[in-house]
């Protein structure tokens, strides 16, 4: 079977800092890959490159055998590679329901100027989604006023309802209390299985990685240091020392901001 996502000789550096060091990577349909690595190892950058937010200095990215290196984030989404964010990206002045409805409208290309949004989308589906992320009772609250954990779920749901072939999640469980982490992953994986979505998720919690991933890739200084079955990678002495060391599973501080559209700053 051919690869769903593939990168060849991916390189990127900011000044003297190398954030992607000759990355050759491939992902098959149906895999559930956990990406691990310390802060600044280049995990988010790798996602940003794959999803068209940042252009690599050199190298190519293929999605479903098509070269997407120069494609826009939007075009890549339309092809079926969708992502969620480490810092949840919601429309803070829209209600929770509207956030979901907008994703559904985008998926089905509903762009009416006259018909109301709620009548453009299947309300049954909205209900199901809201129920599955347990935000039904808060559906008329402004998304910006949700607590961080709920925002996170909403963010993932906004990506998931697009029915992607590949969903990339940047730390889906960070900012969520440790009891809830497993609950969230269980719900998530259920939905992913149901719709046969291949997934990549960046994760710091070792329990979650070993429980839910079918494959693990460890990043060190912009390069993939180990890649393979969870048991193999997690027991690799180099990985244990350099990746799973004391700082592992600590919540990352966030200094990452978002600004896709240039010319504004």
């Amino acid at each position: 079977m051919s690869d769903l996502l593939k990168t060849t000789n991916l390189n990127l550096s900011f000044g003297s800092i190398v954030v992607a060091d000759n990355i050759d990577f491939s992902l098959k349909e149906g895999e559930r890959l956990a990406v691990i690595g310390q802060n600044g190892a280049g995990k988010t950058t790798f996602i940003n490159i794959c999803t068209g937010l940042i252009r690599p200095d050199s190298g190519n990215i293929y999605f479903a055998d098509e070269d997407i290196t120069k494609k826009s984030a939007r075009a890549i989404v339309k092809m079926g590679m969708v992502r969620s964010f480490q810092l949840p990206q919601v429309y803070s002045e829209h209600t929770v329901r509207e956030c979901i409805e907008l994703s559904l409208a985008a998926r089905d290309n509903k762009t009416s100027l006259f018909k109301s949004l709620s009548s453009c989308v299947d309300q049954k589906e909205v209900y199901e989604v809201l129920t599955s992320i347990q935000l039904l009772d808060r559906s008329d609250v402004l998304a910006g006023s949700l607590p961080e954990g709920h925002k996170k779920l909403l963010d993932i749901a906004m990506a998931l309802v697009l029915r992607p072939r590949l969903l990339i999640m940047d730390e889906p469980t960070s900012g969520v209390s440790s009891q809830e982490k497993h609950e969230i992953m269980r719900i998530l994986m259920g939905v992913l299985d149901k719709y046969k979505v291949t997934s990549i998720f960046v994760e710091h919690d070792i329990d979650i990685v070993s429980q839910y991933a079918t494959r693990v890739a460890a990043w060190i200084s912009g390069a993939i240091a180990a890649d393979g079955a969870p048991d193999m990678v997690l027991n690799d002495p180099v990985i244990q020392e350099q990746v799973l060391g004391q700082s592992f599973s600590r919540t990352e501080p966030n200094m990452n901001t978002v600004k896709l559209v240039k010319g504004v700053s």
Partner: peptide, 12 residues
């Protein structure tokens, strides 16, 4: 107004 990046990432 609130999140243009997300808009692009739902394919709009």
């Amino acid at each position: 107004k609130t999140n243009e990046t997300r808009l692009e990432y739902i394919g709009v």
